[in-house]
Design a protein around this nucleic acid. Structure first.
Length: 106
DNA sequence: CTCGTGACTCCCG
DNA sequence: TCGGGAGCCACGA
């Protein structure tokens, strides 16, 4: 398997356990390109549907949903809440609690 | 080959 | 805390 950035990104996203989230930047970094956050967004656009990726588990570095209100912000929030992720009164997620750190270590 | 796209992130102020 | 500006780069047409 050729290690293409896109493929790694897809694998990473697909591996996020329910109730956990990852930021675009972290995914990009883990996939080998710390500056590829924007590509991750694009990949989500082009592959989230055809690869059935848990796109809702991807948020930005601030712990907030990045989707525009008119693009599914509410849906993503809903899906996350359904997995037990809690939002504060400002719609932020506590990364310390929900950010997916590998599989173990801490 | 060039170009547009993009659900980002960092750095001020 | 928030917003604007600049940087970033893979992919498809």
């Amino acid at each position: 398997m050729t290690e293409i950035f896109t493929q790694r990104v897809r694998a990473l996203i697909a591996a996020i356990p329910p109730g956990k989230v990852l930021s675009y930047g972290i995914i990009a970094s883990r996939a080998g390109n710390r500056n590829g956050a924007r590509q991750v967004a694009r990949i989500l656009h082009s592959s989230s549907q055809k690869f059935a990726l848990p796109w809702h588990r991807v948020i930005n570095k601030s712990g907030r949903i990045s989707l525009p209100q008119n693009k599914g912000y509410a849906l993503q929030k809903q899906l996350l809440q359904a997995e037990g992720v809690q939002f504060d009164e400002r719609d932020r997620i506590d990364l310390e609690q929900y950010l997916w750190r590998d599989n173990d270590n801490f």
